[in-house]
Amino acid sequence: MRLPAFDYIEPKTLKEAAKRLASNKGAVLLAGGTDLLVNMKHRVIMPKQIIHLKALPKLQYITSGKEGLKIGALTTLHEIATSPMLKERWNIIAQAAQEVGAYAHQSMGTLGGNLCQENRCRFFNQSPFWRGVRPPCLKAGGKVCYVVPKGNKCYSTYCGDMAPALIALGAQIKIEGMEGERSLPLKKLYTHNGKKPLALKKGEILKEVFVPPASGKALYLKWRVRESLEFPIVSLALYVEKDQKDQIKKARIVFSGVGSGPVEATLAERIWKAGPLNEQTIEKVAEQAVKEISPMRTSIHSPAYKRKMAGILLKEALKQIYS
């Protein structure tokens, strides 16, 4: 499968990249390429221009201080997966990075690219020949969604591994744009609109991920059939932090693979927080959480199965985090 033709530029600065991105409607950003190039070969993305970011060395770092952890958007997943500092102090981040694709995907893929990956759908991530069996779907520029044929909504699914882990830790992101820099909570990056999953404005580029100090426990669990290569059927990140009186101060449950963005089960979090920690609460938390996710038939796995596994996975995770 050949790539469609495009112009190619390597901006020297982030500012320049933002400018070029803003000024060219058909421009897209390239980091590791493991997501973008597949979509281009499938002709679901046909950019006029590719803005390659990898020449920006300043965005490749992992630093940690009193104020928290900073990871540059161009840091590779492999660097994150193998960072001794992360493994020691922020293991969930390293753990999530280890779960992405396989070794080569991790050495190519970047944190920024992973967070900004396209949503997925079994009607979208296919070749032109495959898609040619029916008129184009909503996400590929057509008028129908084949997942839910009635209505005018795209149900494509967010399948990233890094986002749930970072959202559970309360991560913030820094974005460079035409009007300078802005920060927002990572979870606000996701619109939950399958057609346009990211809340980035014209010309905006994800620059850095900031994680505030986290003294609690965190865990990332991914469910897939084979132990490599695959995207999550469902995955989840947990974070729990207690105060001095052993009361839960923060409790976060964030899923991937079961919605058009990472899904935080906020009502389930409340039940968890309210405690007490026992089998019954765990059941209740899981029961509530699966109500808050909205898996659709966007992959080869059924929504019912995803829901079932989300519950099982959450119960496992809750048990693990306390053991």
């Binding site: 790539l3 390429g33 493991t34 190039l37 070969k41 590719i50 050495s107 190519m108």
Partner: peptide
């Protein structure tokens, strides 16, 4: 496979494994 899912096209770039089917030569 030409889509980054089989590893047959793996090369090393600065010693790191890359799927050459998902790597632009220009880059």
């Amino acid at each position: 496979c030409d889509l980054g899912t089989c590893g047959a096209c793996t090369v090393l770039i600065e010693g790191k494994p890359y799927l050459s089917c998902l790597t632009l030569a220009v880059a």
